[in-house]
Amino acid sequence: MNSITKYIAFLLMAGSIMACEDTIYPELADSEPVVSIDAFVTSQEKTQVIKVTKTQYYFDKNRPAGVSGAQVSITDDQGKVFLFTESNTDGWYEWDPALSDDSLGLPGVEYSLSILAEGIEYTSTSITQGVPKIDSITFNFEPENEISLATWFAEVWARDLEGPGNAYWIRGWKNGEYLSKPAEILTAYDAGFSRGSEVDGLIFITPVRSGTGINLSSDEDPDTGKFLPSYLDGDSIYVEIHSVSETTFDFLNLMKIQIDRPGGFGELFATPIDNVPTNIIPSQEGVKVVGCFNVSTVSSFGKKLVAENETP
């Protein structure tokens, strides 16, 4: 068999293998539910919520079961106590800043979390860091090409605070809808993506200020197969920058790795699914808990895209 014949045979064999795709539904072993704590609290003047729920089966699409009757509080380093009371949703505990003279999320203040649930106390601490002011939002136009429809891309301009070790969670909304896909989790360390870069005190680098999370992740147009636009004339964008601790920075990035799965052939080389390390400590040895506690100060900025006011 000559080389050309071998090559054709190889292509035919490879094509037949790739065409044989079956959908499978693996049977996963049952696991004992553990407490999950979502305690991301901010300086914003709106009701703050701490969610205490139970983990569930991987393919269960129902809302996680809430843990009712817990005692939930945050105490600052001056002894001020912020009591969270259970809402009408089981396991959701709320504190309303409008009903208090005290403030959460003050930079430089250490906050301690205490949750007593089902006879076990869960504790954690978080020191609130500063956050840069958002200077402006601009839009850049990209004409239609071979892979993407015509689109405007947003850029958020802000300068990292002086001093190394500042970490941020950047969150975006398009037309009032939160960009909540796993691929749209956007974090920054100083003005870059990770530790070790010499970008302290600089304007956020391009992959941060125009990253996925500010702009949409890639979805395809079913008619053309090209990527859909991030923004079009008349769309609006709203962005928040949350200060986070280094522990929370790591938590968010590890969480993104776990839930933003590539699927298909690439999944063979992906990081195995595992619980993300938590900064919450149970009082009883051997008890498992998942989740994270962080108190953020927040800056925000919004803008509507008026194409005639932008430079194409």
Rank of each mutant, 00 (worst) to 15 (best):
151 T>P: 02
170 I>N: 01
100 S>A: 14
72 V>K: 07
42 T>I: 04
38 D>A: 09
155 E>V: 11
288 K>F: 05
17 I>W: 10
8 I>D: 03
57 Y>R: 14
16 S>Y: 08
53 T>Y: 10
311 T>W: 04
126 S>D: 04
276 V>G: 03
55 T>R: 10
182 P>L: 05
245 S>L: 03
86 E>C: 01
292 C>A: 14
40 F>Y: 14
5 T>E: 15
78 Q>A: 09
64 P>E: 07
26 P>S: 02
2 N>F: 05
279 N>W: 05
196 G>F: 02
208 V>G: 03
98 A>W: 13
305 L>W: 09
238 Y>I: 00
52 V>W: 08
131 V>T: 11
309 N>Y: 08
308 E>M: 09
38 D>Q: 13
150 A>W: 13
160 D>P: 01
203 I>M: 09
6 K>H: 09
161 L>W: 05
174 K>V: 13
89 T>L: 09
5 T>P: 10
235 D>Q: 09
27 E>W: 02
280 I>S: 07
81 V>W: 00
235 D>G: 05
120 I>V: 15
37 I>E: 11
260 D>H: 11
203 I>V: 11
259 I>P: 00
209 R>G: 01
58 Y>G: 00
219 D>Y: 06
265 F>G: 06
220 E>Y: 06
273 I>K: 13
27 E>Q: 12
211 G>P: 02
53 T>M: 13
265 F>S: 11
238 Y>F: 08
52 V>L: 13
4 I>F: 14
291 G>V: 10
